[in-house]
């Protein structure tokens, strides 16, 4: 139980995928303009991460390893991730059309979101058990959502801030991102 908690919190805070491992930066900058789309994106990515882990872990250990096909990991994992992204897209289009249109191109981009593939591959590399893998995926997804939600708040403040002409727009956003990243450095050393 203690290891589970450590895995969950370290995936969320100390090894936050976006702010410490710079994975999944494109939705982090692209969908963080509004709080509701940031939270929606976070939920979508968390869902895809957990589902992908649920499927890729048994496939890796049940099918690929016994047949000595570990070199297929990347291809199979991408296929599974693409499957779930497509599924999420269909569900959102039917059930939450407003979120579907506000996520726009960033929704299909989850397919190539390196944070998602990163979770599934790191689960295997770190030698996690099935339960630990799912907890790691949950932590990574929640950490991703946390980063997006916090950053959407920062960007809202940034809209009204008086910043020098040259820094307006993208430069100011990137600087703000670096400062949020610095704040997450405070979590390092939380677990040993």
């Amino acid at each position: 139980m203690k290891t589970m908690l450590v895995i969950l919190l370290s995936a969320m805070l100390t090894d936050n995928f976006v702010l410490s491992k710079f994975m999944g930066i494109c939705p982090f900058l692209g969908v963080s303009k509004k709080l509701d789309s940031a939270a929606g994106m976070g939920i979508a990515v968390t869902f895809v991460m957990i589902c992908a882990t649920l499927v890729t872990y048994p496939i890796h250990h049940g099918i690929l390893v016994p047949n000595h096909l570990e070199y297929f990991d990347t291809v199979v994992f991408i296929l599974i991730i693409a499957l779930f992204v497509q599924l999420v897209e269909n569900i959102l289009k039917k059930c939450v059309p407003s979120l579907y249109s506000s996520l726009g191109v960033y929704l299909p981009l989850i397919t190539t979101n390196c944070a998602v593939l990163g979770v599934t591959v790191l689960n295997i590399d770190n030698g996690y058990s099935f339960g630990q893998s799912i907890v790691n995926a949950l932590g990574a997804g929640l950490g991703f959502m946390l980063a997006l939600v916090i950053f959407s708040g920062v960007r809202k403040k940034l809209e009204y801030a008086d910043i020098p002409e040259t820094f307006k727009g993208v430069p100011a956003t990137l600087i703000a991102a670096s400062i949020v990243s610095v704040s997450f450095m405070g979590f390092s050393g939380l677990f040993n």
Binding site: I63, L69, V76, L79
Partner: peptide
């Protein structure tokens, strides 16, 4: 076998 597994997926 690899072809079958990947194709099956």
């Amino acid at each position: 076998i690899p072809a079958l597994i990947l194709g099956g997926c």
